[in-house]
Nucleic acid binder design. Structure first.
Lengths: 190, 190
DNA sequence: TGTAGCATGTAAGCCGTTACATGATTGA
DNA sequence: TCAATCATGTAACGGCTTACATGCTACA
C-alpha cells in the first residue's frame, strides 16, 4: 500500500467538495452551503471544524486562501486548487466505500419502549415525525432552488434520493405511531 | 437545571438498555446482542468501548458485575440494578430527543458525482445497494428470531420500522442508479 | 439601541476508534 | 493442529464538539 493510497478524513472531502462547485467561499459560507446541501446526508461540521479543515487543506496545497477584507471586516475566501481537484477526484473514485453511520435516537427510544411511559413514547415519535417532515420541506425548497443549473445535476440527484429516503422514514415513523397508539402488547409484526 | 437533569452519553444507555431485557451478559455478549439489534439504528460500539461503559455504569451503581469464571476461562457477567432501571427509565422519558445523525458515504459520492468517473459512480451505488439488501435480509432474520416473546414487543416494532426505513433507502438507491445509467445531464428532477 | 447575522479563531475535553496484548475453548 | 470464536482489557490517537473570545455590519 503506497503513500498515495491514504486519504484525509471524510470531513476534509466534504469541505473540499463544497469548494469544487466553483465559487470561492469563506469558512462561514461553507457552513451555510453545508446546511443547505450536505446536511441531508452528512453531519454539518461545526464552524471550528471547518476552519481546521481549511487550515489542513491549505497546508496540503489543496485550497488557497485570499484575504478579501473590506475595511476592518475580516473576510478570507478559499478556493480549490488544481491539486485539490485531483485529490478530490482520487478520493471519489478510489477511496473504499464506508458503510453508512446511523444514530437514530427515536428508534433507540422505541427499542427501549418497555422502559418508557406509553404516552411519552408516542410524543417522542411524533416529535421525530415533525422533524422528518420539516426536513422534507427544507429539501423540497433546496431542490427547487437548484433550478436547472447543469452544474448542480448531481446535487439534484441527491435531493431526489433524499426525497425517497426521508419519505420512507416518515412512513415508517407514522406506522410505528399508529401501531403504538392501537396496542403494542400481543401484536405480531407479520 | 438540577444535577438530576444531566445524563450519561447515549452509548451508556445502549449498553444499559441491552441489559434491561433481562439476562446477565458478558461484555462480549453485549456486543453480539448489539450486532443483532441496535446496529440497525445505532453504531455498534467497539469492544473496548463496551468495557469502558460497563466500568462507568458499575462505578455509578447502575450495573453489578459477577465473576463467573469457569476454570481458567475469564468470564464476568453484568446485570442491571434497580437504580439502573430507574436511570434508564428516566433517560427514555425525560432526555431531550436528539436529532438523528446520518453519515452516508454513498450519498456524498453521488453529491460529488461531477468529480467521479461515471461507471465507477454507478459501481459505488451498486455496492451500497448490496449493503442495504444484505442489511434488510439480516433484519428479516432477526425479526423472525424474535418470535412471539412478549418481552421483545418493542424490538419487533423497531424491526418493522427498519423494514420500511431500509426499504425506502433501497428504492431510493435503485432509482438513483437507474437515472444515472440513463443519463444525468439535462435531466430535471420533477 | 440592540439583536441577528457575518466572520474568525483558540482551548478544553469527551467520544470512540484502531492497535496492541493475552489466553482459553471448540471444532474442522 | 490450526483457525475461529470466546473473552478481557490497555494505550494511543484522532475527530469533532462545546465553550469561550472578539468584533464588525445591517436592520428593526
Amino acid at each position: 500500500m503506497s503513500v498515495n493510497d491514504e486519504f484525509l478524513p471524510d470531513s476534509s472531502y466534504v469541505v473540499l467538495g463544497l469548494l469544487s462547485f466553483g465559487p470561492r467561499l469563506t469558512g462561514y459560507e461553507i457552513r451555510q452551503w453545508a446546511l443547505g446541501s450536505t446536511r441531508f446526508f452528512w453531519t454539518a461540521p461545526a464552524m471550528s471544524q471547518i476552519y481546521r479543515e481549511l487550515g489542513r487543506l491549505e497546508a496540503a496545497g489543496l485550497v488557497t486562501s485570499r484575504d478579501e477584507a473590506v475595511d476592518d471586516r475580516a473576510r478570507t475566501t478559499y478556493g480549490i486548487t488544481r491539486r485539490g481537484r485531483t485529490e478530490l477526484s482520487r478520493w471519489v473514485n478510489d477511496a473504499p466505500l464506508d458503510e453508512p453511520v446511523f444514530r437514530h435516537p427515536a428508534a433507540l427510544r422505541l427499542f427501549l419502549g418497555h422502559m418508557a411511559d406509553r404516552d411519552r413514547l408516542v410524543e417522542l415519535l411524533q416529535e421525530h415525525h415533525r422533524w422528518v417532515s420539516d426536513l422534507l420541506a427544507d429539501l423540497a425548497e433546496v431542490d427547487a432552488g437548484l433550478a436547472d443549473d447543469p452544474s448542480f445535476a448531481y446535487p439534484r440527484l441527491v435531493a431526489q434520493w433524499g426525497h425517497r429516503f426521508y419519505g420512507g422514514e416518515r412512513r415508517a415513523t407514522r406506522e410505528a405511531i399508529t401501531t403504538l397508539e392501537a396496542d403494542v402488547r400481543g401484536r405480531s409484526i407479520d
